[in-house]
């Protein structure tokens, strides 16, 4: 939420990839080691694997060992670019095919919401895989409430362009590192003013809480 600085209760890095993603090179355990060793100021992170939801992996032992919250979402590919999906459940996975490239963004946003989650277009300022250029060509996508305004992999003016888009359409903004290698986790995150303990809590917070995208330093 824009405006006064959010008093932080929880800082989460909302966009990362592990070796489960085709272009991910990081093991989740090494992400935890890195955060711990380097003193990165995040309380947890979300794994948003490309075109899939990793239902099987159980990271609770790592959460216990490192005291870090590890949540799982997804990053799907739509006709308006890539979209983070939080709150994935069985019903949502039957509503649309996560593996498909070129999903209808409107369908994804609508179905994710209907199934109890929230869809967040990511790196919107990026050419082709971001929402901005598509919005300029075809108009905004109904139902979008939140976009990623701070992405750790952005180049040039991509983050500034994302922020301008958020201001133009009154979207709220989140931050995520978009890490694909261990040492990139924790570059960008989202600061919330309420405690978050699980994915349900994150979805609720993204809908109703105060939060802001932040750069994190060790």
């Amino acid at each position: 939420m824009r405006g006064a600085e959010v008093s932080a209760l929880v800082i989460l890095d909302l966009h990362n990839h592990s070796i489960k993603s085709d272009d991910g090179r990081a093991k989740v355990e090494n992400y935890c080691q890195w955060i711990s060793k380097k003193g990165i100021g995040v309380d947890g992170f979300v794994l948003t694997e490309h075109r899939q939801f990793d239902a099987e992996s159980d990271y609770r032992p790592l959460e216990d060992e490192f005291g870090i919250l590890i949540l799982k979402g997804s990053e799907v590919e739509t006709d308006y670019g890539h979209v983070l999906v939080f709150g994935v459940n069985d019903e949502m996975q039957t509503a649309f095919d996560f593996t498909r490239i070129g999903l209808s963004a409107e369908l994804v946003v609508r179905e994710v919401k209907r199934c109890g989650g929230i869809a967040v277009p990511c790196h919107p300022g990026r050419t082709q895989v971001g929402m901005l250029a598509h919005v300029r060509e075809r108009g905004a996508v109904d139902g979008v409430e939140v976009i990623e305004t701070l992405n750790g992999g952005s180049r040039g003016s991509e983050n500034d362009d994302a922020q301008s888009l958020a201001e133009e359409f009154s979207y709220r903004g989140i931050g995520g590192s978009d890490a694909h290698i261990v040492s990139h986790i924790g570059r960008c995150s989202t600061r919330f003013d309420q405690d978050i303990e699980d994915m349900d809590g994150l979805v609720e917070a993204l809908r109703t809480s105060r939060y802001e995208a932040v750069r994190v330093s060790s």
Binding site: R25, R155, G156, I181, S183, H184
Partner: peptide, 19 residues
Amino acid sequence: IEIDLTIVNEAGETRVLGT
């Protein structure tokens, strides 16, 4: 051991990454 590798440009933007 595993090593993260990056090449960044003058602006600090990652151009190449890997392990």
